[in-house]
Design a protein around this nucleic acid. Structure first.
Lengths: 362, 362
DNA sequence: AATTAGCAAACTACGGCATAGAGTGCTAAA
DNA sequence: TTTAGCACTCTATGCCGTAGTTTGCTAATT
């Protein structure tokens, strides 16, 4: 069922007004600020209709109207104004990204900080575990007489390094031969392929390579989708308390507890890969049970078509979606993430660094 | 000025009572629960004296007494009961530490979680940057044609690995020769020695090694005390809101903002190395300016006489110090941290794992 | 000299009450 | 279809009085 232009205008006015003040919006307020040509009575009638349609509610019979979650969904889809970042907002971005950034962790942290600072909401960023990486090379490096370091190089960067304890005296020659063997075995395959059917890919393993071999398999396992490894960063959790909807201590606590359990946030933050920005607006079934009422907006960050991570905000359903979208959009376009997969280690040189361009292009 | 035994008893009763209920303690309450032999009037006189001495205050003329910060300081030093962990508390410890733990990060996180869960306070743990580690070996491993990974092995574990970009085609032979050179240059020295006078330790560097060399120096720099690298973990920040003293939204927000700025927490958490447990009880000059009123109790964790990190709690001045101390004490004695320095990488095998003994020995 | 009973004074916490103000829905007129 | 006018509903706020708690002080007691 479509909305007439006037209803749309009024709905937008209510949402905008409520986002701004967190106060029920009255008919006279709308008349004055947005539709002076109409009388408040007419606007009241339209608002009553919008309530009938499920877009508005009242807290009590003599209060103004408040948008429903459905109204916000329509708002982000059609109604909301598309902004660019203001000069001062761009300054904030630059402040965090103009220096050389050498670690993926830092990019994550800074992204989250920028988002939180500009939107004044709690933000979250994380690197997605990605088992689509293809193995290029595996190196075993002797550390002590009995232990060695495993280095796995993929097309998305250096994966993870774990030390493995190899009973007796380890020689460099032994390491080289294991390196050759495992590289030969795995190179060219993606991690998910290997996880799915390790036996098919590798037919036979020499007895003395067993230990290294199983350790490597274990590392791959930790990258599978089921047992997701991911680095998650939260910024500005105190900002939750600035939102009037969490002024109630009980609600504030529920929200903070939700944020505290970082690991459990991951499934909630997952968004569909084909869309750049995902909205989850207080629809309970979409999100974890027992979760406090809130909205989550996330953007996925891609490198060469592959999603490497997500970043976004968590806040009350009444949030400034327009601003949030503009920030997420801008960052996803301009912050160049390191061309390395999850768990990649830092880079001591200047070759990779995040850059921010001066202009947005919407 | 010493306290008579009776005054001590009354003071202890007030502190204990206030810790338990967060309610001003009245003379009659003390009479009933602790000193039935005395009249409330006598106790009132003593309490007035304790107020005169700076150990108690009242919120208003007709309220009971509340301990001052000074009272808590005396309490933790002399008055408080020394407990052992209860059976159920030990269970919590075991729940987090009975599985194999392979990464220092995990130990940190679990330590913080245990502390937070048992004390019901916000806890914090961090690994101290330690530049006392001695270099054993440095390996340069070829990753791609133009880049290599630097692995630094110290007596405290594998330090950090950074990729370095080496302009033209990198061969394994080149890597080996660089490895030999830098190992020869640095092995046997501590990081702080190298940071202090790199030129004295290494006289001359071949032109083609320059790049790798400077990258390594930069890594060492990041471990110096000035530019501290440290991993800091916060657990249960939502628990702050359970404390009545932060029921006020403004105070809660101040506290959460303080916790949000993790980096700034480090200097606050630093404690004197020679003492096992350090108390900072609302003495403003000791702690950062603008900090909300709170108490911080930290324990330092040592391996072989070297402090590898700290862990503790942050909460209201009125906290259950007795319980806090018993937990910190127990953990510092029984959780065996990984024998690896800061920044050590994970360990894919079972060789290192944290263990928890079943009994306390106080 | 120390302790205690008794009592007035101080102060908070709470519930009830009345009032002001904001906003709506409805009806009848334009 | 729109609007003016009005009664009705509900919240928010401040005021007031009362009940209850705890203290400090004084005078009596041990």
């Amino acid at each position: 069922m479509g909305l007439t232009g006037r209803k749309e205008k009024i709905l937008q006015a209510v949402v905008d007004g409520y986002i701004e003040n967190c106060q029920p919006v009255s008919s006279s307020e709308i008349k004055e600020k947005h539709l002076p040509a109409l009388s408040s009575a007419t606007i009241r009638n339209e608002m009553a209709a919008l309530e009938e349609m499920g877009y508005l509610t009242q807290l009590h019979t003599s209060s103004g109207r408040v948008p429903t979650a459905e109204a916000y969904r329509l708002y982000v889809e059609k109604l909301m104004p598309r902004r660019k970042l203001t000069r001062s907002e761009l300054k904030i971005v630059k402040r965090y990204f103009n220096k050389k950034i050498t670690e993926l962790d830092e990019v994550l942290k800074n992204t989250a900080k920028v988002i939180s600072e500009i939107t004044n909401l709690t933000s979250v960023a994380y690197v997605q575990s990605n088992d689509a990486a293809t193995i290029l090379n595996i190196r075993i490096v002797r550390i002590t007489d009995t232990s060695a370091l495993i280095i796995i190089v993929t097309n998305m960067g250096v994966l993870k390094d774990a030390t493995v304890n190899i009973g007796s005296g380890v020689t460099d020659e032994y390491c080289d031969s294991v390196s050759q063997f495992v590289t030969g075995a795995f190179a060219g395959h993606t991690i998910s392929e290997i996880n799915r059917q390790p036996n098919k890919i590798v037919k036979q393993v020499k007895k003395e390579y067993e230990r290294v071999f199983s350790t490597i398999l274990r590392i791959f396992k930790s990258y599978s989708h089921d047992d997701m490894f991911s680095d998650i960063v939260l910024e500005g959790s105190a900002k939750i308390l600035e939102q009037p909807e969490y002024a109630n201590l009980k609600k504030a606590k529920a929200m903070l507890e939700f944020l505290d359990a970082k690991e459990e946030l991951v499934p909630v933050l997952q968004n569909s890969d084909d869309v750049n920005i995902t909205f989850q607006i207080g629809r309970d079934n979409e999100i974890r049970e027992g979760m406090p009422e809130c909205a989550i907006v996330t953007a996925s960050y891609n490198i060469g078509g592959v999603t490497v991570g997500n970043a976004g905000v968590i806040g009350p359903i009444r949030m400034d979606y327009s601003k949030v979208v503009s920030v997420l959009d801008y960052l996803s376009k301009t912050v160049q993430m390191l061309p390395a997969g999850e768990g990649a280690q830092g880079d001591g040189t200047d070759e990779y660094s995040s850059s921010v361009t001066s202009d947005t292009d919407e």
